[in-house]
Each structure stands twice: as structure tokens, then as C-alpha cells.
Simulated assay, not measured.
Amino acid sequence: MSESVRTTDHKKIQKWAESRGGVPAKIKDTGKDDADGVLRIHFPKNSDNDDKFEEISWEDFFENFDDNKLDFLYQDKKADGEQSTFHKFVNRE
């Protein structure tokens, strides 16, 4: 059985993403101005839609993450034991 974990720990989030080839990104044209946009961890090696993502710095990513009071929900492994890239951003409780 796979288990999800919830965190706001910047180092833990960055380590999880980078160990899977993920980079901080936002979806283009989803914000009110250049600083805004829907956050994502983008996995370029697993994606055919690179043109819809804009890679951003970890500093900008976490500033947006904290400003919007988000939590990071993620899985380490899939039910079959394989490494997982499942994640999503949820509102902090």
C-alpha cells in the first residue's frame, strides 16, 4: 500500500523533487503578473508538454509556496514499491 506524506519543509521538498529529476516550475499564463502562477514540480524527462512549464528558482518557488500557505502532499513509493512522482499542493490547515 502506498502512503502519502504532507510537509512544508523546504529542504525535504527540494530533496524529494531533485532525487526524481524534478525542477521547480509554474504553469505559464496562470498568474495575474510575472511573479504569480500555478506551482508545479516538473519532471522534464517524463513530459511531452515542456512548453507549458516555466522553470523557476527554488527561492521563487518557496516564496510563492509560503505566500499561498500551501502544503506539499507526496508519495515516496507506489503500491508496487516503485519510486513515485505523485504530488500535489494543498491548502495548509
Rank of each mutant, 00 (worst) to 15 (best):
M1R: 11
E3Q: 14
E3V: 07
S4A: 10
S4C: 06
R6P: 00
T8H: 10
D9Y: 08
H10W: 15
H10L: 11
H10I: 15
K11V: 15
I13M: 03
I13C: 05
Q14G: 04
Q14I: 02
Q14W: 07
K15D: 10
A17F: 04
E18I: 08
R20D: 12
G21E: 00
G22P: 07
G22I: 02
V23K: 00
V23I: 07
A25L: 03
A25F: 03
A25M: 04
K26A: 01
K26R: 14
K26Q: 05
K26H: 05
D29G: 12
T30N: 03
K32D: 13
K32E: 14
K32M: 12
K32I: 06
K32N: 10
D33Q: 13
D36E: 09
D36H: 08
G37F: 02
G37K: 03
L39D: 03
L39K: 03
L39E: 09
R40M: 05
I41A: 05
H42Y: 05
P44W: 04
K45H: 11
N46T: 12
D48R: 15
N49G: 03
D51N: 06
K52R: 14
K52A: 05
F53V: 02
F53W: 09
E54M: 03
E54S: 01
W58D: 05
W58M: 02
W58H: 03
W58L: 09
W58N: 09
W58S: 11
F61L: 05
F62L: 01
E63I: 06
E63H: 10
F65Y: 05
D66I: 11
N68L: 13
K69I: 11
L70A: 01
D71Q: 14
D71W: 08
F72N: 00
Y74Q: 02
Q75K: 12
K77D: 14
K77V: 14
K78I: 08
K78P: 05
K78C: 09
D80I: 06
G81L: 12
E82L: 15
Q83S: 12
S84P: 05
S84L: 00
S84N: 06
F86N: 12
H87D: 09
K88D: 10
F89S: 04
F89T: 00
F89E: 01
F89C: 07
V90E: 13
N91M: 15
R92C: 11
R92Y: 12
E93L: 11
E93I: 10
